[in-house]
């Protein structure tokens, strides 16, 4: 018999290293034609940091996005980044990029103050221009500034770093540990159909909503949301390196027997959205969240299985074998 059920799961996820102490740096330099190079040391593993760090830099410098290159090619040129893990790059490197852009703007203002013979406080860097507030004739394009600065024998480089604070240890007795850079949240609703004869589960629909602080790029978030779901479905239903755990008997060998979710296993209806509660320390309010996109589908599916067949499967993944055994035990 095929039985349908609905399940929900909620969760939270922190950004960055447990206890803090994971800094990132960024560097932005002004080129002779008024364009910019952004350098950092974060790795793009597909999440899209090469894209969003430019977005942040362009906003802070108030220049066209096309005018900024990004490079993270090696450790000779790239400033330090603790690494691409723990949903930390948007938060830590994002803040470092904002700091570098702000530093470069300050240096441009100081240079322009000398040129315009005014105080740096009166100089505005905006709209790809450098000008004295309220004095329209005292204005230079960024291209002119780039040329005059660089050919004039100056080199303006903005540097920025961000750390969520020094690393914190747990209190050995109470476990007190107050450092958490940001917490994102999420909720997933899964609809499944369970075949009680075969134990096979079809996920019919998955609704996922994540609270991300501020989405840097909504469509990159969409990719994380749907992509994480793919991994979460595998976590819930199929992925197991040691099927006879704790032994190593019949441990999987490759992608033939380690079953990851394919396009055909994805629910025909995938719904995702974000909500935003800006974080006071996040770059433009952003939190780190994308690991969490893999965390909720699994428990939502197992809860939906219970809703469908009335018995609990409490071991992940909920393979057909486990579902049939649970049904059998319930009827015994």
């Amino acid at each position: 018999m095929k039985k349908r059920g609905i399940g929900i799961a909620v969760g939270t996820h922190p950004a960055g290293l447990k206890g803090g102490g994971d800094p990132s740096q960024a560097q932005i330099r002004l080129k002779p034609d008024g364009t910019f190079d952004l350098l950092n040391g974060a790795v793009d593993i597909g999440q899209g940091c090469k894209t969003i760090l430019r977005q942040l830099a362009a906003d802070e410098l108030d220049v066209p996005l096309e005018n900024i290159t990004h490079q993270n090619i090696d450790t000779d040129t790239g400033p330090m980044c603790t690494g691409t893990f723990a949903s930390r790059v948007t938060f830590m490197d994002g803040n470092a990029v904002l700091a570098a852009a702000a530093d470069l703007k300050k240096k441009i203002r100081e240079w322009a103050a000398e040129y315009f013979e005014c105080s740096p406080a009166d100089v505005e860097v905006a709209n790809n221009k450098v000008f004295v507030k309220g004095v329209p004739e005292k204005s230079l394009s960024m291209a002119e500034v780039g040329a005059m600065v660089n050919w004039g024998g100056k080199f303006l480089v903005g540097t920025g770093a961000y750390t969520p604070g020094p690393g914190q240890q747990f209190d050995p007795d109470t476990g007190k540990m107050t450092a958490i850079a940001s917490l994102a949240f999420g909720c997933c609703v899964a609809e499944v159909e369970v075949d009680t004869e075969t134990g096979v589960v079809d996920v019919l629909k998955l609704v996922q909503v994540f609270e991300v602080g501020k989405a840097m790029n909504r469509l990159l978030c969409k990719g994380q949301n749907n992509g994480g779901a793919m991994m979460g479905i595998g976590f819930g239903l199929t992925e197991n390196v040691c099927p006879y755990y704790p032994t190593m008997d019949f441990a999987v060998q490759d992608l033939t027997d380690y079953v990851i979710t394919t396009a055909a296993d994805m629910p025909p209806v995938m719904v995702e959205d974000i909500v935003e509660v800006p974080h006071p320390n996040g770059p433009r309010g952003a939190k780190g969240y994308s690991e969490m996109t893999a965390s909720l589908a699994g428990p939502a599916i197992l809860n939906a299985i219970h809703n469908a067949i009335g018995v609990w499967v409490t071991d992940y993944p909920a393979t057909p074998e486990r579902i049939l055994k649970a049904l059998e035990a319930a009827h015994a």
């Binding site: 597909g46 969409k222 990719g223 749907n226 992509g227 994480g228 779901a229 793919m230 991994m231 992608l255 990851i260 979710t261 394919t262 396009a263 055909a264 994805m266 025909p268 995938m270």
Partner: peptide, 22 residues
């Protein structure tokens, strides 16, 4: 849609881009 899903179902994507690919 079903034919598209079938057409790419032999291609694994661990980033999980299936929705966007379809």
């Amino acid at each position: 849609r079903e034919q598209i899903v079938e057409g790419i179902s032999g291609n694994l994507c661990r980033c999980g881009t299936y929705v966007e690919v379809v």
